[in-house]
Amino acid sequence: MFSRRKALLAAVGKGALDMLPLSLAVLPWGILFGSLAIQRGFSGLEAQLFSAIIFGGAVQIVTVELMAENAPLLTVLFSALVISSRHFLYGLSLREQLRTRPLRWRLGLGFLLTDELFSLSGDRRAYRNKYRLYYAVGAGGSFYLAWNAWTALGIIAGAWLPDMTDLGLDFTIAATFIALVIPDIKSLPILVCVLVSTILSVIFSIYEMELGLVAAALMGMTAGFSVQKLRQV
């Protein structure tokens, strides 16, 4: 009994350790969000609440800007839905592993299901047993704590910091995702998927297409899937 508990705790620690580089990578982004919210006239509590209960990256920054401009409520909510819609794909991908789990696991891991946690969920055995579930809680939970700590730093420093939205901090996000994607390119279908997704996401972004990110991703997935099917014939 004691050793089982120890093993579960070790799984939580392993998850947190694997997540650590990503938790650190969002430090500038979290500080940016916290200070931005203060500079746009939100109270410290409101700013922290964004990170505590919305727990998103781009969605928080975009909606803070929209709310500060007094955009209509529906515009704010619709933008959030568009930016968050990629998560539908994550839920679908993990459905088979998680749908039979007890409600508290699904609610907890669902809440923690960020890009970062999903990127650590690629292993075939992910979420398949208790240790894997604890691993995910360690990874997702530590990322949650880090994101909220960095937000708090931004809130505290907010008044003294310059407007950071033009400092090129978005590059760290790009570098993080490059670090997650490149080592995963182990076959021709995945390479095709990444190339198609690259080209289409850039085109859709230039034309400011709503849902461009999800459309590009879906077409990249379809391209990779098609190549895989053709090679099986």
């Binding site: 969920s121 994607v181 990444v194």
Partner: peptide, 9 residues
Amino acid sequence: FSAPAVLTA
């Protein structure tokens, strides 16, 4: 393919 596709996009 969803992880590489979305993160790339």
